[in-house]
Amino acid sequence: MLNSCHTTLIPKYRTNHVAPRQITIIGGRGRMGRLFKEQLSLVGHNVSVLEHEDWEYADKLLNQTELVLISVPIEYTVDVIKRAAKYLAPTTALCDITSVKTQPTQAMLEHHSGPVMGLHPMFGPNIKSLFGQKVVVCPGRNDDSFQWFLDFIKSQGGELIVCTPEEHDQMMVIVQATQHFCRFSLGIFLAQSKVDIQQTLTMSTPNYRQEIDIVKRLFSQNPHLCVDIMLATEERCDAISFLADTYSRLAKLVAMKDREALIQEFDKAQSFFEEKITSFMQPLNTIAIQRDFQPKLHTNISI
């Protein structure tokens, strides 16, 4: 459990007047990069973009900026951090928004002497605003340098969740990687079976319609992003393998029509959820109390 994580629920308001900041987004023409460029530009910040063909201008784009935001595929993140760090002033704030946090945060701390923070937006690039969206914050160094950026996220109605990079990566194995695999597998199965999705929706339950919508959104994404999320770490690969073994074991019980064994599996899982239900429902009952809570961004990370 992430007992050291803090959730902040932000009042629903928008700031229209801000002091313009100089920001460079590496990967700013990608879908997530474009989203952050649009949201930051809307409130008056000056946002530049650096893509792979723009490195001859890196000194100008990176040295004279207040915040460098790295928004590139997982497999390139650490290399881009190392390359970008050579151009940064000691006062430049550096952060990334990839879905893995331990390695990127360590790389930023190692290669940049200035402010460092890891972020993980818990949403895709198709959203219209940050309102109601979660962003995981992994503090690194000189947290105060990012306060204006975090205030921007909060002013748009975002929700900040603060934890260490290690805690983040541990939770994303379950929250993200295995869920991606489940829906990836379901989508592949439906495609291979040539199921008439439209016909199934005419007589579907609300849960089925919701699940099909999630699968559809998964397969509307860049395939490289979806696969990278599953393959990002050995822990993710191991968990997916364990999940697949579980599927296989249960499928064998179904094939043998072993009703009693399946009921025993159900009973064990039911006991697990009954035991945990109080703890994971509790935050929903304390939303009002936590509404004004502000995160303390002071986590020491050794590298």
Rank of each mutant, 00 (worst) to 15 (best):
D258E: 12
E75P: 02
L231K: 10
S155D: 14
Y13K: 13
Y87Q: 01
A191W: 05
R209I: 04
C226W: 00
T246S: 13
I174K: 07
L262C: 00
S302N: 09
H45Q: 04
P206M: 03
L225M: 15
H112E: 04
H45I: 03
D196V: 07
I70K: 10
Q179S: 14
L225F: 15
E167A: 09
D79I: 01
V227P: 00
G33T: 05
F184I: 00
L225H: 08
I289D: 13
V137F: 06
V136Q: 02
T205A: 07
F272K: 10
C5F: 12
V49G: 05
L88H: 05
G158P: 08
Q294Y: 01
L262M: 08
L9C: 01
G157I: 11
Y247F: 15
A84M: 09
L218A: 05
I277G: 00
M122F: 13
T15E: 13
D238H: 12
Q156S: 13
L150D: 02
V49S: 03
M256P: 00
A255D: 15
R29G: 01
I74V: 06
H6P: 00
D144A: 14
K296Y: 04
C237V: 14
C5Q: 10
E260S: 08
C163L: 14
W55F: 15
H111Y: 15
G114W: 09
I81E: 02
A93W: 09
D258Y: 04
T98M: 01
F242S: 14
D151V: 02
V135A: 09
L42N: 13
I23P: 09
E234L: 08
I188R: 12
P121K: 06
H224I: 02
L9D: 00
G118L: 09
L150P: 00
S129M: 05
Q106I: 15
T105P: 00
Q210M: 11
V254E: 02
R141C: 09
G27I: 08
V100N: 00
T92C: 11
G27F: 04
T286L: 08
N16R: 12
H45P: 07
R217N: 13
D96Q: 06
M172S: 09
M256V: 07
M203Q: 13
S71G: 08
Q192A: 13
C138P: 06
L150T: 07
L130T: 04
F181S: 02
D144Y: 07
H298G: 03
D54G: 07
G124M: 05
N3H: 07
L186M: 15
A255S: 11
Q133W: 04
S193Y: 03
N142V: 06
F131I: 09
L119K: 11
T8R: 03
N207D: 14
I10R: 08
K252F: 05
R249S: 10
V137D: 07
P121L: 09
P11D: 03
P73L: 01
I303Y: 12
V47K: 10
S185Q: 11
I197A: 04
G27Y: 05
Q22R: 15
A251M: 13
K268W: 01
T65L: 02
M256F: 11
L231N: 12
M171G: 12
T278M: 02
A255V: 10
I214K: 06
F184H: 06
I303V: 12
T278S: 10
P104V: 11
A269Q: 06
K276A: 05
T202P: 00
L284P: 03
